[in-house]
């Protein structure tokens, strides 16, 4: 598949969404609702459960079941500020009880409606990212479908990031990119944008944005989830022994390294 085909594949309604992974991976998962401020955004599913022997908090963007009713109720997986505030509330709760946080990312992006703007979409994402960077408990994120821009990063400012082999992660939707740069989001332009933006799982591995690429096998979904579960347990076991300070340092260094630029070195004038 080329990048555009991969993008389209992540949007197919029969592709497993977060809820399917949650049911397979965690033992006795209990969903917890609401942001305690305004509403319960169903585009975010979150709760507590066991990952093997470890109690964890899970947080996910959920696109909904194939039927339109459920998809609409979940706003097609595009969270509003209330969703990000629910996510943050439960991350803080996880921190309090020293539970690792496991995030599943599958969203076209944060919702771009008038109500979302009114209630501070930008502020909600900004706060989520900043608080995640300071969260004193391990955070592991998995991009299972679409990783759409800031709305995805708000659940992926993590110690480790995994991505499924045909999932995508991008700064802007290829449609948005094509319509800004080339005026029209025709299929050819979108395909070109998808290529130029470097959105595939392999790109993420090469750029260091993801630590591991997870093989897909939707035919044998249980087996695939078993493998993913083991991978998650492995990651939790690696991170759980970190001191709070080391955990924050590891996360900071993980993101600190991103950036490609030229630097002119002027020995005499050069400041630190």
């Amino acid at each position: 598949m080329n990048p555009y085909e991969k993008l389209k594949a992540t949007r197919k309604s029969d592709r497993p969404t977060s809820n399917a992974y949650i049911q397979e991976i965690f033992d006795s998962p209990l969903e917890l609702h609401g942001d305690r401020r305004f509403s319960d955004d169903l585009a975010i599913v979150a709760g507590v459960g066991f990952l093997g022997k470890y109690p964890v908090t899970f947080i996910a963007t959920e696109k909904g079941k194939p039927d339109l009713q459920d998809r609409m109720a979940r706003n097609f997986g595009c969270p509003k500020p209330d969703g990000y505030r629910k996510a943050l509330r439960l991350m803080k709760q996880a921190e309090k009880f020293h539970r690792p946080v496991i995030c599943f990312v599958d969203t076209q992006g944060a919702f771009a409606g008038a109500d979302a703007e009114e209630r501070g979409q930008g502020q909600a994402i900004a706060e989520s990212i900043m608080e995640m960077m300071g969260l004193k408990t391990p955070v592991i994120s998995i991009v299972i479908g679409e990783g759409g821009s800031g709305g995805a990063l708000a659940l992926a400012s993590a110690n480790k990031v995994f991505i499924l082999e045909n999932a995508v992660y991008s700064v802007i939707s290829p449609e948005g990119c094509a319509s800004i740069l080339w005026k029209e989001a025709s299929p050819e332009n979108v395909a070109k944008a998808a290529e130029c933006l470097h959105i595939t799982a392999q790109d993420m591995k090469n750029l260091g944005v993801a630590e591991a690429v997870i093989q897909e096998d939707f035919e044998n979904f249980s087996d695939m989830c078993e493998m993913l579960k083991n991978k998650l347990i492995e990651a939790v076991e690696e991170l759980i022994d970190f001191s709070e300070e080391d955990l924050l340092e590891q996360r900071y260094r993980r993101f600190r390294k991103f950036g490609v630029f030229e630097e002119e070195k002027k020995g005499f004038f050069r400041k630190k």
Partner: peptide, 10 residues
């Protein structure tokens, strides 16, 4: 690309 997105977290 995604490296710009990473600047937000950085």
């Amino acid at each position: 690309g995604v490296i710009s997105l990473m600047q937000m977290a950085k």
